[in-house]
């Protein structure tokens, strides 16, 4: 039986189709291990060889990678939710009800999207905490830390804009509390220091621009939806590309300086 499978595998591996896809065979050699990384567009985010301490989960906690995994989960489940959700005040809440009660796997998709979003906020904070504690923001990684801070801000904005979309009491009041702050922006808010002096009123200040009105209403829903599903994910993905590319260019995961004299 196994003999048949083996000959079959050998036959398949000799076909032009197989070779065009996989390029190298699967014998466990140094060369093939390297090709496995280099010949795969996704895996080749990695270098071929890294220092052993960087594979230690106790060093990185895997938090950056987990954050990225959660971002992918959010993208997949988010696209599925978009099939069922209309960002208009008349429909939004009913679409949520429909999703939770009548769509096959609807609750699973929504729950996964929500819990992954909360989890991502936690993991991104912990990732930052780890990077700080290992001093990995020091030269030459200063700029990648700044990219990271932007990613942190973006993750919070993504989560916050998504919070409004169910259009229930929890959603509009949490967002009302959050966006009320914008009123108090110095210079740009109608109740902020020097705002009124500069002509800021409730219907032309920065909060009005954010909400598309003087209170959280249907225009806010549409605005947050577009930000949540298009603008912020695009900016986030771009920044992640920069972040990952920079990790490679900065010499991979940080570690003790090998030239430092051992004391």
């Amino acid at each position: 039986m196994l003999g048949i499978l083996d000959t079959l595998r050998e036959k398949v591996q000799k076909t032009e189709v197989y070779k065009s896809v996989f390029r190298h065979n699967y014998q466990d050699t140094q060369r093939n291990r390297a090709l496995q990384i280099v010949d795969n567009v996704f895996l080749h985010l990695h270098p071929v060889r890294i220092s052993r301490h960087a594979t230690n989960i106790g060093f990185t906690w895997g938090m950056g990678g987990i954050t990225f995994l959660l971002f992918i989960v959010l993208t997949v489940t988010g696209v599925i939710l978009m099939f069922y959700y209309r960002p208009a005040a008349e429909y939004a809440y009913d679409d949520m009800k429909y999703l939770m009660n009548d769509v096959a796997f609807g609750p699973l998709m929504r729950n996964m999207h929500r819990w992954a979003a909360h989890a991502m906020v936690i993991t991104v904070m912990l990732h930052m905490f780890r990077v700080f504690l290992t001093g990995s923001y020091k030269a030459p990684r200063q700029f990648n830390w700044v990219v990271g801070v932007l990613l942190l801000t973006l993750t919070l904005f993504l989560s916050f804009t998504g919070y409004l979309l169910p259009w229930d009491q929890l959603a509009i009041w949490a967002v009302t509390v959050g966006t009320n702050m914008a009123r108090a922006t110095p210079l740009l808010g109608s109740e902020g220091p020097f705002g009124p002096e500069l002509g800021m009123k409730i219907n032309n200040d920065v909060r009005f621009v954010l909400l598309g009105g003087t209170q959280v209403g249907p225009p806010t829903l549409l605005r947050f939806y577009v930000l949540h599903c298009i603008f912020l994910p695009l900016v986030g993905s771009t920044l992640m590309i920069v972040h990952f590319w920079r990790i490679r260019k900065d010499g991979g995961i940080s570690g003790p300086d090998p030239d430092a004299k051992k004391n």
């Binding site: 390297a34 052993r52 301490h53």
Partner: peptide, 27 residues
């Protein structure tokens, strides 16, 4: 101990399988 544990693990290993394995299990 005066010198960090991380410095003792500074030899290079291949990403496939040593890192990919960890990533896969974590995922």
């Amino acid at each position: 101990q005066g010198s960090p544990d991380e410095a003792k693990l500074s030899d290079k290993v291949q990403v496939w399988p040593y890192l990919v394995k960890v990533e896969f299990l974590a995922a």
